[in-house]
Every structure is written in C-alpha cells, then in structure tokens.
Design a protein around this nucleic acid. Structure first.
Length: 548
RNA sequence: GGCUCCAUGGUCAAGCGGUCAAGACACCGCCCUUUCACGGCGGUAACCCGAGUUCGAUUCUCGGUGGAGUCACCA
C-alpha cells in the first residue's frame, strides 16, 4: 500500500507540513521548572465544583512556578455549544480568583499558541492525521453505524471486548483502489488509529508518570480509536494530544475519569513522535446521594456541586478557595494554623500532597472555614461583598445597605476582640443573623423564659425603660439589670440561683433574656449593650415600649 | 461483564515495617459566661477481610470484598 498516496487522496487540501506547525509554535522560553497548564472546558457554560477544583490545581501549578495557565475551548462536539459560554466560564472562575494568562477570552485570543478554540483548528488536526496516514499509522474506516453495531453484538455474544480492533478492523484490509472507489462514491468515513496493541496481551504494559498517583501501570491500548470524525473534526483523544503538544503544555490536569483512556493517548503521543506531558489525574469530588447517608457518588448536576449554589448562598470566594485548598493539599490546614494571616498564595501547593481517593464534600467544614475567613475581611470589604451579593440575589432587601456606617458597625459587632465572635458564615445566613437591626425585618421569634411570668416580664421592661440611660457604659448598664433582677426576686448571680434555687424566681440571665427578646426578638444574640449602642437610643426605647 | 482507580473514626485526613495509630470538622461533657457564640479542657469513635513476605505489618505482595470510574464519530 502506498501510504503517501493514501494521505494525498484523503487530505488533498492539506498542504502544510507538520514541521511548519512545530516552528510556528516553538518551545516556550520559560525559566527552568515553569509549568504550563490549561483548562479545557466544553462550552456548555456549566461550571461545577469539580471544574473549579481542577482549575485551582492548574492555576496554582502554573502561577507558583512562573509558568502559564491558559484557557482552551474544547468544542469538538458541536451539539453542546451554549451562547455566551466562554464569558460565563471566565467570569465564574474569575469570581473565585482564578485568572488565565492566555487563551480564549471574551474579546478574542491572547497568546502565541492559538487558535485556542478547537473548532478553529481543523487544518492542524488534519495535517497531523495526514502525517499518521502517510506513515501507515492510521487509516480510513468505512464501517457504518449498523455494521459496528453488528460487530459489537457478535463480540458481546463471544464475550470479547467490544470495539474496532485486530480482525474486527475490517477497513484495515482495504486496498488503495477500494478506498479510492468508496471515496469517489461519497461513502462516509472516519480516520482511525492503527493500533499496534493486541487484545488480551496483558504482558505488554505501559508505564506513565502521574504527578499525583506516581507510576501508573496499565495494559497498552489495542483499540483502533477514532481520531477524526466523519466531519473532519477530531475526537477528544486526538485533539488533546495535538493541542497539548503544540501549545507546549507541561502538565495535564484532568479528572480521574480519563484514566481509562490514558493508553490511547500514550499510543498517540508515541505514534506522533512526541513526548507525553506530565499527567495529574485528580480525584473525583464525591457526594452523598439523596436522602440516605448512602455511599459515595459522583454527579454532574447536584445543586451543591454547582458553583452557582455558592454564589446564591453568598459564600465568599475566599472561603471557597480556602476550603478547596484544604481538600486539595492535606498539609494546608496545618500551614494555615501556623500562618493565620498569610495569603493563600504563600502556601506551597504540591501535587504530591494531593489525595488520590475521592473526597466527600463537607458543608460543615466549609462553614467552619468560612467563619475564619470572614474574620480576616474588614467590615468595609464585607459590606461591599454583601451589597454586591444582595444586588444580584436579594434586591428586595437592598435598602438595608443604604446606611453604610450603620451596616459596618453591625458587621463589626464583637469582631475586634482577642476572642472574636464567629457569627458570620455566608451572605444568606448573615442577613438572617442581623435582620433584627432593621425594623422591617424585626420580629419576635422566641418566648420569655419559663422562670419569668408575664407580669414579671412587663415589670422588667417597665423598670428597664425607666432607668435606661443611653450613655451608660457597659458596667453601669449591667448594674441596673442586676438591680432590677434583685428587686423582683431574681438572683443577681446565676451561681446563687444554682445553689439555692428555692430562694429565687430565677437569675439575672433570665431577666436579661427578657430585654434581649424585646430588643432582638430572640433569646440568643451578641452582647446586648453593644447592640443597643448600634441600634441607637430611639430604636432601643421604642422596642421596649412596644412590649410593655 | 472487561479494564482502571480507590480503601484509616460520621466526614476530611497524617502515617510511607516497630507509634499508647496525629490533627481538623461534626458530636457529647465540663469550664468561662447575663443568652448565644468565641475560647480552654476532656470524651466517644478508625487501620474492610483472608493469605503470604518478615522477628514484626495499618504500612510491602497476592486474592477476595466494597465503593467509584470507564468501555461513543461526548468530553
């Protein structure tokens, strides 16, 4: 068979030589050890936590080594394109602090290794497919869907591996004349890799270095995988190999679901005479499935796996980043404890410290981390963050941001001290937590404690209002509470009440709870005196007045 | 079903032949305290099973079991 002739027959319009592309995309002149990574989403615009997880690895690897991180749009499957997807992808990741150095952008490509959209790279893939044809390493396959179905059925009944390979690769046997004839007749065909592997030959293993998992040992590929579809568009396998080589990617970060097709990629790299990049197969993010506290389960579209969920709930991007890093690198938490104030960027992220078993998403942990993260954010920044969130997701409450000064005092409540409060977790929760500061959201939610009768309750509030002086300091204020408590038969100290429960109706805590409920509507809140100072004299008095 | 990956408390995880098997989250108790939080102290709780290698296996090898992934002209 004259493979050269076959190549010209199949790709008459491809005139460029592979070498031209090699010189067009020279080795990147980066410093020693610099890593080049990429994110290759399909343009559905749907980004989930798993994508962010992977993107974070790419980003850290590249930026920690003074390398490059680029965005490549993998749109070889025309059915999945969604309008505005690129914009959504870039913005979603940007929100979480992940930025690209080059690649596809909203306004066009940036960088010297483009085009960064696979659908625009048709000629490049065809050029290298032609090269493989000419070297007898690939061939046109004319099998129809029906024929492939029949082959599969036969394989299934014989309990053989399904697929086109070995003797089942019928189109391998075609002569040049037969191929020419079919093409003239307009018969549709794909280009398949002519694999050197043999089914069942378990002795032949490939060894691939994976930065997360160490040396992987797998059986070699034996499938004549499709590399170019009938449309001339490449499959993922071929596009991955060609692109990551020409774009000089050094580290390929992708999910573990790609592990089974790794032998295909290895054979393709080998046949094209290229070096494989370093693979980093990340663990899958897991989730407990519905209802039952069942087993691990991975899903594409669980609500809390969608990034929108975190934005809706109003988690601060920094909290999500920090959480991701704690599940990404097992030594991060320890580092954070030693460096509570340091920027995340100072942490040395390594693939070796990555877990290779799937992590179950833990909302408790996220919340815990978020509390600490928010503590590091100033009230002013928090104000801006919440306001931006409310503008997008809760426009009906935007008026609470009108008085910035008031809001910032609220947000700073109890945060300045050595043992700061950690009440704030995410926007939705924060709004609920501080709602009593706003008259239109204020409501009485809790009951007076059992120790306080209704009559006593009114008396407490009456006396409280009578003696109220807004300029009292905290201890003067509390002395007055104590006085009210004792005159009404409540212990001034909880310990006294505990010792002699029969001598008192209750203790000062019960009395202050009454005040607390009148002011905040709830029996639990930060310090009453401090809250009063923020509420102001008028609002404080009027709330007490209302319950008398 | 074939192939692949994975396997330490409820969750995330240290460990890389000899440890009373870290730590964090969650949970429980106590302390602090006018409530709640915060903080402090303490507690419950784990090496999937079976062989083999070894003086000795959570750690190495094999087998099983379990979970996950993948077997497309989708990525």
């Amino acid at each position: 068979m004259d493979y050269n002739k076959l190549g010209e027959l199949l790709f008459p319009n491809i005139s460029k030589e592979p070498d031209e592309y090699e010189t067009m995309y020279p080795d990147r002149k980066l410093k020693e050890g610099a890593k080049v990574t990429r994110l290759g989403p399909s343009p559905t615009g749907f980004i989930h936590l798993g994508n962010l997880y992977g993107a974070f690895v790419d980003e850290r690897l590249a930026h920690q080594s003074d390398g490059k991180f680029y965005l490549r749009i993998e749109d070889t499957d025309d059915k999945r394109y969604v309008d505005g997807a690129v914009e959504t992808i870039i913005n979603s990741l940007k929100f979480f602090g992940i930025n690209f150095d080059e690649g596809a952008t909203m306004t066009g490509d940036v960088g010297d290794y483009g085009d960064y959209t696979q659908s625009n790279r048709g000629e490049i893939y065809q050029c290298f497919a032609k090269k493989l044809i000419k070297e007898g390493k690939a061939y046109p396959c004319f099998l129809t869907e029906d024929e492939i179905g029949q082959i599969r059925a036969k394989q299934e009944s014989n309990k053989e591996n399904p697929g086109i390979y070995g003797a089942y690769a019928e189109s391998r046997k075609l002569s040049l004349e037969e191929i020419e004839e079919k093409i003239k007749a307009g018969v549709s065909y794909v280009i398949r890799l002519k694999s050197d592997g043999t089914d069942g030959d378990t002795a032949r293993k490939i060894h691939v270095k994976d930065a997360i998992r160490g040396i992987l040992e797998m059986p070699e590929n034996f499938q004549d995988t499709v590399i170019l579809k009938a449309t001339g568009i490449p499959t993922y396998h071929f596009a991955h190999v060609v692109d990551d080589h020409l774009m000089r990617t050094t580290h390929v970060v992708r999910g573990a679901e790609w592990l089974p097709s790794l032998p295909i990629h290895v054979e393709l790299f080998e046949k094209l005479g290229w070096e494989t990049p370093i693979y980093c197969h990340t663990a899958q993010l897991m989730k407990l499935d519905a209802e039952g506290n069942k087993r691990k389960l991975s899903k594409r579209e669980d609500p809390e796996l969608s990034l929108d969920y975190y934005r809706n709930q109003g988690y601060h991007p920094e909290a999500v980043r920090e959480y991701l890093l704690t599940i990404l690198n097992s030594n991060f938490e320890e580092w954070r404890m030693e460096n509570p104030e340091a920027s995340i960027d100072e942490f040395e992220f390594t693939t070796e410290k990555m877990s290779n078993s799937g992590a179950l998403f833990d909302l408790n942990k996220l919340n815990d981390i978020s509390k600490d993260v928010l503590l590091r954010i100033s009230a002013t920044d928090l104000y801006e963050f919440l306001k931006a969130w409310a503008t997008e997701f809760r426009p009906e409450i935007i008026h609470i941001f009108d008085d910035e000064d008031y809001m910032e005092k609220i947000l700073d409540l109890g945060r300045g001290e050595a043992k700061p409060r950690k009440d704030l977790i995410f926007a939705e929760q924060i709004i609920e937590f501080i709602s009593y500061f706003f008259d239109d959201m204020f409501k009485i939610e809790d009951e007076f404690p059992d120790e306080v009768s209704k009559a006593d309750g009114s008396q407490i509030l009456e006396k409280y209002l009578e003696s109220y002086n807004h300029s009292d300091d905290q201890s003067q204020w509390f002395d007055k509470i104590r006085e009210i408590a004792t005159t009404l038969g409540y212990a001034a100290k909880p310990k006294d009440f505990k010792k002699n429960p029969d001598q008192y109706k209750g203790h000062v805590g019960h009395v202050s709870t009454v005040v607390r409920i009148a002011l905040m509507g709830r029996s639990q809140s930060p310090d009453v005196w401090e809250i009063q100072q923020i509420l102001g004299e008028d609002r404080t008095k009027s709330r007490i007045q209302k319950l008398i």
